[in-house]
Design a protein around this nucleic acid. Structure first.
Lengths: 246, 246
DNA sequence: CGAACTGTTGAATAAGGTCAAACCAGGTGG
DNA sequence: CCACCTGGTTTGACCTTATTCAACAGTTCG
């Protein structure tokens, strides 16, 4: 596996790259779970590891799509922009998530690192060749795309029809669920994004997000520590709020 | 190709089914464009034609996903519901569009016919077998899923960040664009859905949709006939409104 | 300590929702 | 033929929710 350092990454930040997929932190949950043996080796052979510092841009909209890959470490926000600067975050990506679309020629949105991010990248021409030759890989990508589509549609329901309170509750439950999928034990949920970014994900203003946090806190549904660690104290109650059945 | 009639379809409504894909109205734009010759024949062999009357349900949420297919005629709304009845339409499907996800075991939303709908359906087990054997088909499905995902994210931007006026303008431009893709010449756009359904797609109330129609009408951007035929009189202006640059 | 940042809270405002009445076709039946 | 109904739509008046603007608090870091 080759090692490349992102533009925004100072020399001294280069991380050690695992030679062996078996030791990879996200081996069990990323795209590569679809592969094993020689197929996995072929994928590893085209992989490039790249580090991005917090705040750095992974790609902008309407550029040629040169890379797709797996998030190994850190959190990414994917978003769309309106000409006047209004922003809608369409998804946060965590370790194990796949970034980029292997079928699209150009990017259709922006991606930015919220924390220090390590990516396991696959250059487009190479991955497209592999997809052709490895049906397992293509099936996995189709499954991922379908799941992403379903999540996006669930979010359309949230953005189109839910109240501010319901949106925040849904968001916290989603984070909890995603953390669980990554094998992170119950306990405080880490919020690698700030209030403004949560607002841009939920289609709200940052003040409204803050107010809704306060409400959930004072109603005893959650506890907040250091502004970026949330503990769910009443899962059922929070679920009812999220679904509008409270 | 077998012929099956949907529950809601009285006997006398059975339509003639084309024996030959070459004569199919959506041959040039549907999934099947990825295939030809013997592959196309194999797909046709598992296909089942089914008619749905306006208002009938194609499938509900959280059912086993037994079918996927192509819309041959008519318009479908796909939507999500909240327990209290709030509805978000996540997409309208027109002739040539693909419905259903071949990878998902259960449905994740509802689908309902807005007009008389003719579907060219592929039963799940059979299509999954074909996908395994025909990489062209799988690649096409991956492309479709990626495109759907992008549209869904574009809609998240609309639902999260656009004003009522911008939403309606964007909606009309989308319909015009989709009509064009189906090879329908410029000219009045047909609205097979009512104001309430447009509202449920745009995350608005039906009254707000109506008011925004009136505004676009009196500002000369559009003309409306019979409440369901819209002519765009100022494409550039409408585009500027849709993007928030007006 | 003070600057810069992020988050919280309050007051005023605006956008869109809700409720209700009027409108306008397209049918139905006297 | 025309009055009447009916469903969808439009329009108006009022209300609610979330936004905007603004002040303030808590942290972090030089």
């Amino acid at each position: 596996m080759k090692l490349v350092v992102g533009n925004a990454c100072p020399r001294h930040e280069i991380a050690a790259v695992p030679e062996d997929c078996a030791q990879c932190a996200v081996r069990e949950i990323a795209v590569c779970t679809a592969l094993s043996g020689p197929e996995l080796e072929r994928l590893r052979d085209i992989a490039v590891s790249k580090i991005f510092e917090p705040g750095s841009t992974l790609f902008a909209a309407d550029e040629p799509a040169t890379m797709v890959g797996t998030v190994v470490q850190g959190t990414i926000k994917c978003f769309k922009l309106l000409p006047d600067g209004r922003q809608q975050i369409v998804g946060f990506l965590f370790p194990g998530d796949f970034i980029g679309s292997p079928t699209q020629e150009t990017t259709h949105g922006f991606a930015e690192a919220l924390t220090r991010v390590e990516l396991c990248l696959f250059p487009s021409p190479a991955i497209q060749r592999l997809i052709r030759e490895m049906p397992n890989l293509e099936r996995r990508l189709l499954t991922l795309a379908s799941d992403d589509l379903d999540l996006a549609q669930e979010w359309m329901l949230l953005l189109g029809r839910k109240t501010a309170q319901e949106r925040l509750a849904t968001f916290l439950l989603l984070l909890a669920q995603k953390a669980k999928a990554r094998g992170i034990a119950d306990g405080p949920i880490d919020l690698p994004m700030n209030r403004s970014e949560i607002a841009d994900y939920l289609g709200l203003s940052l003040e409204t997000v803050s107010r809704q946090f306060s409400k959930l806190k004072s109603s005893g549904h959650i506890r907040i520590e250091h502004n970026n660690e949330v503990t769910i104290r009443n899962l059922d109650g929070l679920t009812e709020i999220a679904e509008g059945t409270a």
